[in-house]
């Protein structure tokens, strides 16, 4: 994974600021333009492909709406790093193929740092400070799904295998 700019947020970044209800009717293009605007108005316009969003505790708290991680992915965010994630959000992010990495030292990353996240190795390199931060490994079954690109491509593979072998059940 290439390096990207770190966008640093605080505790309890919630799904209402990630994916505001007002745009839930809209497609992901429109939704993504308003991602995080209530707390960081310039974010959607400035974030670049490959950037990394960093939170502290309980990132993604709130709703089941997967437009929250989807909007970040749509904007080109390559990975999420936090001290902890809300459980439902964590599942959604990985299901969409967006790596979410738990790092106890997430607070050592400063806004604007260049970072490189390696979810497989469980490591973050901070190119601005020279620090390497250790992360919790992503559980093996989820890492497999992430390598496939998320739950949809993962299921496509399973279904294709099933059709080849003629198994009746997945």
């Amino acid at each position: 994974m290439n390096s990207g700019r770190a966008w640093v947020f605080g505790d309890n970044v919630d799904t209402d600021v990630l994916a505001p209800g007002k745009y839930m009717k809209s497609g992901i293009d429109e939704m993504a333009r308003h991602c995080l605007e209530a707390v960081e108005p310039g974010f959607a316009g400035s974030v670049r492909s490959g950037d990394v969003v960093v939170g502290r505790r309980n990132f993604g708290t709130g709703s089941s709406r997967e437009q929250a991680p989807q909007a970040l992915k749509h904007l080109g965010v390559a990975a999420l790093v936090a001290e902890s994630f809300a459980g439902l959000f964590y599942r959604n992010a990985l299901n969409l193929g967006l790596p979410a990495v738990v790092c106890a030292d997430a607070g050592r990353i400063r806004d604007g740092d260049r970072v490189r996240v390696d979810p497989e190795a469980g490591r973050i390199e901070n190119l601005s400070t020279g620090q390497t931060l250790a992360c919790e490994p992503i559980p093996a079954h989820l890492m497999q799904m992430l390598r496939d690109g998320g739950l949809m491509p993962h299921l496509e593979k399973r279904l294709a295998r099933q059709r080849e072998t003629g198994e009746s059940r997945l």
């Binding site: 089941s64 709406r65 997967e66 439902l88 599942r91 959604n92 299901n95 969409l96 998320g150 739950l151 949809m152 299921l155 279904l159 997945l170």
Partner: peptide
């Protein structure tokens, strides 16, 4: 009983 997102629900619906 617990909450899931739409893609996760898709997985449940299929499997």
């Amino acid at each position: 009983m617990f909450g899931v997102g739409a893609t996760e629900m898709l997985g449940v619906l299929v499997t």
